[in-house]
């Protein structure tokens, strides 16, 4: 990788040199005796080389520090942008317009960034019927298209594990299966995505409150506030968070123009993202993309606070369970067998 490294142009006139000259011309306030090993050696050549190198190092470091994120670094407005919760409606309007313009300039695609608020009295929950899931992974692809996830290198919010019959052990499972016919014999399939925990360890981990739980239970990330420390990735017991190690590239014809500020709007390298139960859809009364794409009917989604909702009936009547219950994360994502 480092072979592509661009060489750092050093100005050579770094402050190291200048201050060095200044100091040696200074008045002799002090009485300096050389320590034994430091016996006076006036090796001008060596010293000059040293100063030059030191100056270059200082200059290079300063250059790196000044540019922050390199040539494609943040603009002043991006750099100074406040935390989501401090933004006024006026601020949001400007920011959304800026994001739309930026996408237009980069890809030529006209997008619409909006920010649907959480609905009053609504708390979402998800349930997944493991008896019918056959591991076809349509949900994974639909999610990627809906949420503007890059294909190369791939970022996916949903991971479908192929489990060994008779085992609930993840170490025996694999997400890397490729089969002609699904489901395979003696296998069963377990899709895992963000569980939108009611007690989310990732939110506690974040040092800058860039991720939080919304009133409807969805855990969101402010991609413009995340510093990219990945402590939330470390803290998540469900492997639900993704970090943008690369600058994500989406082909223009695959960009979903309907974008939520806290969900599927463009992200850049260096920040964390995750499943948001497609809040830009679900908060407008639609179903998550993964559910719509599922051909087996394994996926169920709805408002936990509505006593007549399908999700409520499943949780009340089926034998549901949550993953890693012992960690007391209180997931909003339930599994059941029918």
């Amino acid at each position: 990788m480092a072979k592509d490294t661009e060489s750092v142009e050093s100005c050579g006139t770094g402050c190291g040199c200048a201050s060095a000259g200044h100091a040696s011309e200074g008045h002799h306030h002090a009485h300096v005796e050389e320590t034994p090993f430091e016996a006076r050696v006036d090796e001008h050549g060596t010293r000059r080389m040293f100063l030059k190198l030191a100056g270059a190092a200082v200059a290079a470091t300063a250059a790196v520090a000044a540019t922050g994120c390199g040539p494609n670094g943040p603009t002043a407005a991006e750099f100074l942008q406040q935390h989501y919760k401090k933004l006024t409606d006026e601020d949001k309007k400007k920011i959304f317009a800026r994001i739309e313009e930026d996408t237009k300039a980069r890809t030529g695609v006209t997008t619409r960034v909006n920010d649907p608020p959480p609905l009053d009295g609504v708390e979402y929950a998800y349930a997944l019927n493991l008896s019918v899931c056959n591991g076809n992974r349509r949900c994974v692809e639909a999610c990627a298209r809906e949420n503007n996830l890059p294909d190369d290198p791939e970022i996916r919010y949903i991971r479908v594990l192929e489990m060994e019959a008779g085992s609930l052990e993840f170490e025996e499972a694999t997400p890397y299966y490729a089969r002609e016919k699904l489901p395979a014999r003696d296998k069963w399939y377990m899709p895992v995505q963000c569980h939108q925990c009611d007690n989310p360890p990732c939110v506690r981990a974040c040092p800058v409150q860039a991720t939080w739980k919304e009133p409807d239970g969805i855990v969101v990330v402010d991609y413009s506030w995340c510093i990219g420390c990945r402590f939330c990735v470390v803290a998540c017991p469900y492997y639900a968070r993704r970090f943008n190690f690369f600058e994500p590239e989406i082909p223009p014809d695959r960009i979903n123009p309907n974008q939520g500020y806290l969900s599927n709007r463009p992200r850049h390298k260096g920040v964390v993202e995750k499943c948001t139960f497609c809040l830009h859809r679900t908060r407008k009364g639609r179903m998550p993309a993964c559910l719509e794409a599922c051909p087996t009917g394994a996926r169920k989604f709805g408002n936990l606070n509505d006593p007549d909702s399908e999700i409520r009936k499943i949780i009340e009547s089926k034998r549901v369970f949550v993953l890693k219950e012992d960690l007391a994360t209180l997931p909003r994502f339930y599994y059941f067998f029918s």
């Binding site: 040293f50 190198l53 030191a54 190092a57």
Partner: peptide
């Protein structure tokens, strides 16, 4: 000077990291 060489090398590598991200 020896240390400065390493610092320079690392600054170059970090510059590269800033360009391409943590990839």
């Amino acid at each position: 000077a020896f240390l400065a060489c390493w610092i320079l090398l690392g600054a170059t590598a970090y510059w590269h990291q800033l360009q391409v991200g943590l990839s």
